[in-house]
């Protein structure tokens, strides 16, 4: 039991990432690389802290959803936190909150 607990604890490893101000196609490549690295770490939860994010585009959005897909496949969750109003509004318009947990700023 203890082993399993320990194993479980290990699995609940949280990772927080704090992307820069743009999650856009211009930064897609680097964001993609960073995300892959995190996802490969077998974490149980990835929190993206949107404190610095000012802009996001469709590709950026696609990256986040792809990340979510990848995490979900590993039984991990993606959480977006400190999402600025502007972006939060966009996410709720897109009903992104139905598949990703979003915590507004």
């Amino acid at each position: 039991m203890g082993f399993y607990m320990a194993k479980a604890k290990k699995k609940t490893k949280n990772k927080v990432m704090k992307p820069g101000k743009d999650i856009t196609s211009s930064k897609a490549k680097s964001i993609h690389n960073k995300l892959i690295k995190v996802v490969e770490q077998k974490i149980s939860k990835l929190t993206l802290d949107f404190s610095n994010v000012e802009n996001i585009d469709a590709v950026g959005l696609g990256l986040i959803i792809a990340a979510n897909n990848s995490l979900n496949r590993n039984d991990a969750d993606l959480i977006l936190k400190n999402v600025p109003d502007k972006i939060n509004n966009l996410f709720s318009s897109l009903r992104l909150d139905q598949c990703i947990k979003i915590l507004p700023a």
Binding site: A28, K29, I36, E40, V59, L63, I65, A66, L96
Partner: peptide, 18 residues
């Protein structure tokens, strides 16, 4: 959002469809 469209980070690279 059609979630499966962007695919996976690993296999599908940078998403081309959303």
């Amino acid at each position: 959002i059609k979630e499966d469209a962007p695919g996976n980070l690993l296999e599908d690279g940078i998403p081309e469809h959303l």
